[in-house]
Amino acid sequence: MIPAAFEYYRPKDMDGVLTLLAEHGDDARVMAGGHSLIPMMKLRMADVPHLIDMQDVGGLSDIEITNDSIRIGAMVTQSDIIAHDGLSEVAPILREAALQIADPQVRYMGTVGGNVANGDPGNDMPGLMQCLDATFTLIGADGERDVPARDFYEAAYMTAREDEEVLTAVTLPLPKGGYAYEKQKRKIGDYATAAAAVQIVKNGDTCVSASIAMTNLSDTPIYSADAGAALVGTSVDDAALKAAVSAMDGDIDPTEDNRGPIAFKKHVAGVILRRAIERAWSRA
């Protein structure tokens, strides 16, 4: 559990980071909280000759809430999310999800940026951000660009981020309606057996919009537009729930691992989604 030798950098600003990235290309990796990258390096599964620690780069730890959006700096930790009163008020699903990530020690170090940028299908924030239709801001030598969370993930650990780019912020429209982040895991600290993020808007007794994303049930997070659509226009009755679960089931592609075989994961995904929708609906 000892990594191969690597050079360690701690630049003071983003220019310093980008210069290092330009110099070393895919031999370099930026590190936020390090809670995914360092274990991979220790297992010698990630070969990182040049490690760029982002801790001293300023301006990445703010949470800004405006009338219509929330901007979360990449270095904001899960713990910051949980502790931020304003955020809990306008987007309580973020706190509900963050509380289900790992344990307090990890949450003090683990960041939103690292969680969404790493591309690990087990991470909770990617699916959550797809549900909330967030946008990721990337900075590179040619300046900034925005990529929707729903277009960001290509395969396990493969994302739209180029090797020379750094993810600096997550921006999301103010969530509306009821919410739920439902996660089944084997124990504290575990990745999800299945997790569902649901944000749902109600008008009278009718669902007018619903957004649904699933975690750790494919090699990327799964935003299931069809599952959301199955709820819209309904009173979220049993038939609608079944239709949403069925649509979601068509979108996920879990693999067997120590958490269980595929049939189990698909079944649990359905149960978890159903519970998430019911809870979100009750809060809508």
Partner: peptide, 15 residues
């Protein structure tokens, strides 16, 4: 564990 308990239920036709 979860999946094996689930399998008990499944094998007994409880789903």
């Amino acid at each position: 564990d979860h999946w094996r308990i689930w399998k008990m239920a499944n094998d007994l036709g409880l789903h």
